[in-house]
Design a protein around this nucleic acid. Structure first.
Lengths: 112, 112
DNA sequence: TAAATAGTTTCAATGTTTCGAATATACTAA
DNA sequence: TTAGTATATTCGAAACATTGAAACTATTTA
């Protein structure tokens, strides 16, 4: 049997794969503010329902989001706030990089 | 021009893509303990050099690792410790899920 | 300079992800 | 039961990722 570390690396890669799409990251970001129905998300993110549903399925399969049905509507929420925390840290780094990049670009154009 | 948020979601997805592979996560984990040469990593991770180099290129292109040459050797290190922090949080969640799963399995088999 | 070592890149085969379109399922109301 | 709304699944095509093998570049040493 495979050891626990290898299993964790595999699971970790699966989670990253699930997050490796800008639409799915927007979905997670939206769910960070509270649960939402597919319908509402489709409108606010401007996506076809079928496509949104496919992305939600990916997140569901990896246990990143959880669902609750209420009548016709299915409400999605983030399954674990620590995952949002991990996302937030990465975004922090990227924002820094973006700012850094902007500053460098300005310096270069000032020189050119 | 695309707005900053969209750009961040795209960059974030790129970073997740780069991390969405168990080999690359093992590489990052190894680099968490300090810089290492390709040669040493190839041996410790039991990978062909060409393949390791391909994975390192993915991490390099996304700015996740940085390099330094010293003579014949090229040393890789993690470019930003916050990224390791984000990885650590995700692994924490996954370890919890794995433990939770194990506990449930035991309960089920006790009942069965 | 040639040979050796460390690392990278390119190519082609194979596998995976993404999407829209069509189809299917779950629930509600008439 | 039928119709209607909300969501999910399946399929096929295009785009993308992963791999080993071979060819390539950079550095050191003789």
């Amino acid at each position: 049997m495979k050891n626990v570390d290898d299993k964790i690396f595999l699971m970790h890669a699966e989670v990253c794969k699930a997050m490796a799409n800008p639409i799915r990251l927007k979905i997670l970001d939206a769910l960070g503010h509270g649960e939402q129905s597919v319908d509402v998300m489709a409108k606010s993110l401007n996506l076809r329902k079928a496509n949104l549903s496919q992305h939600l399925a990916v997140l569901r399969q990896r246990g990143i989001v959880a669902t609750r049905r209420d009548g016709l509507h299915i409400y999605y929420c983030c399954a674990n706030s620590k995952m949002l925390k991990a996302c937030a840290i990465l975004r922090e780094v990227l924002l820094e990089q973006l700012e850094e990049g902007g500053r460098l670009t300005k310096q270069v154009s000032r020189r050119g």
